[in-house]
């Protein structure tokens, strides 16, 4: 009995330390955003909300502030939405084809689909730059979109494949038996059954695009400056707690998206399958 209690205590300590280590950097950012001093510093000196006020000035393009924050957020938003739509359509169909195709080598094809997820993004970025300059004439928005599509596609393929693997194939057989052709079966039976995976994939894809720095760094231009790059340029000039306040806001957005996923319980299903 006593041993049991000790073991529990040890486990609890380990888990606590583990999470402090894991979430520590985030906590540091959040805490230093409330700093009352002029530079990012930890532990913070005094408590103040003034950097959140400065953030409002940034948004309003007040004088002496680096402009274009709203433009950067807007660019990131449409880029995220557009590449998510593309990734969801191509990724869902791709995952379905990979799971159902009766051809040899589907396993290798699946790995190829996932490669951008595992590959160093800097390689993808350099590759894209070289290719775009060789082709020439590709507008920035399309460069960004094509680049982001590459890195967000695997997110959808992974989650949809996981959903497809838990899908009871006899549901599709039953639909066909009842007179639904392949297209109707996919639309009325398959798609509603894997919608959790599709939604989770869409959210991961959007987050991947919204927060991507490395690939974006090779593709952006002055007039199209996605948010992570804007933030990077900002802290190059101003190491003030305003950046921390901004990062805290982004953190809040990300957290609420993750909570949304949890609400959809799709994450739970993905985890259950990957076991």
């Amino acid at each position: 009995m006593k041993l049991h209690v000790t073991r529990r205590g040890l486990l609890l300590t380990y888990v606590t330390l583990f999470f402090i280590y894991l979430e520590g950097p985030l906590a540091v950012i959040v805490l230093s955003s409330f700093n009352s001093g002029q530079i990012v510093r930890f532990p913070p000196e005094g408590f103040s909300l003034k950097w959140y006020g400065a953030l409002m000035d940034l948004v309003r393009n007040a004088p002496d502030m680096k402009p274009e924050l709203l433009n950067a957020v807007y660019t990131s938003l449409w880029l995220g939405v557009a590449s998510t739509i593309g990734a969801v359509i191509a990724g869902t169909l791709g995952a379905y084809a990979l799971q159902r195709a009766k051809i040899p080598g589907t396993n290798i094809l699946r790995q190829l689909f996932l490669l951008p997820l595992l590959f160093p993004q800097i390689v993808t970025g350099i590759g894209l730059v070289l290719w775009f300059s060789a082709v020439g004439g590709v507008p920035t928005w399309m460069r960004l979109l094509l680049g982001h599509l590459i890195i967000s596609l695997p997110c959808v393929v992974v989650t949809v494949t996981a959903s497809l693997e838990t899908l009871d194939r006899s549901l599709e057989d039953a639909a066909m038996n009842l007179g639904a052709n392949r297209v109707k079966t996919f639309l009325f039976i398959t798609l509603p059954s894997i919608q959790g995976g599709v939604l989770a994939g869409a959210i991961f894809a959007w987050l991947t695009s919204f927060s991507n720095f490395t690939v974006t760094y090779f593709l952006f231009s002055g007039e199209m400056n996605p948010f992570p790059l804007w933030l990077y340029q900002y802290i190059e000039y101003y190491i003030d707690p305003g950046a921390a306040a901004l990062a805290t806001c982004v953190l809040l957005i990300t957290l609420s998206v993750l909570l949304m996923i949890n609400r959809l319980q799709a994450l739970g299903r993905v985890v259950a399958v990957s076991k």
Partner: peptide, 11 residues
């Protein structure tokens, strides 16, 4: 009409 072992009702 096929009656499935698992019933295969659309959930």
């Amino acid at each position: 009409g096929l009656l499935f072992q698992s019933y295969a009702l659309f959930p």
